[in-house]
């Protein structure tokens, strides 16, 4: 069962969107923003609240890249893999982070400190390779520089 706090989040988000089934993607986004990820119980609760089958909620939650069904780290690292960053060496930056944190893209460190993800272009192509940590944009990253950038996030 979803705990009380999570249930309350679902209730409020659904109210905000007037229980509109069409807004499932928006609903899930708002819930994730509050809870940090989409636990199973929350998806079941959302399904009941909207009158949409759980299978549909699960399909949508796993189709879109924005959603995570597992807990995410305190610091979300997004490495831009857009074309401009790619031609400027983003793969090496990503590999360095993977080595440093001992996780692969899409994973979270066991201490829940970092979640590593990739994004296809944030449109800061002049500064590629870009690494975004939380809301901070770090441009012109190199495998060497990125290690010291990450050290600033606890």
């Amino acid at each position: 069962m979803a705990d009380k706090k999570q249930k309350e989040v679902v209730k409020q988000v659904l109210q905000k969107h007037q229980h509109d089934k069409a807004l499932l993607v928006d609903v899930l986004q708002d819930i994730q923003a509050e809870i940090g990820y989409l636990p199973k119980e929350v998806l079941v609760e959302t399904s009941k609240g909207l009158g949409v089958p759980v299978s549909r909620v699960y399909s949508v939650a796993t189709f879109f890249k924005a959603f995570s069904l597992t807990p995410r780290g305190r610091n979300l690292i997004n490495v831009c893999m857009g074309t401009a960053c790619h031609v400027r060496g983003s793969v090496k930056v990503l590999e360095q982070i993977e080595k440093e944190l001992k996780i692969k893209a899409g994973e979270t460190t066991p201490d829940l400190k970092y979640t590593l993800e990739t994004v296809n272009c944030v449109g800061s192509c002049a500064l590629g390779p870009m690494v975004i940590v939380g809301e901070d944009y770090h441009g012109e990253m190199t495998p060497e520089k990125v290690v010291s950038v990450l050290a600033n996030y606890k």
Partner: peptide
């Protein structure tokens, strides 16, 4: 009933029950 659906996308797509 909608007990099963296609989850994930692209090459990772699978026919599964919820979760």
């Amino acid at each position: 009933v909608s007990a099963i659906s296609l989850s994930k996308r692209g090459v990772e797509r699978e026919l599964t029950t919820p979760f």
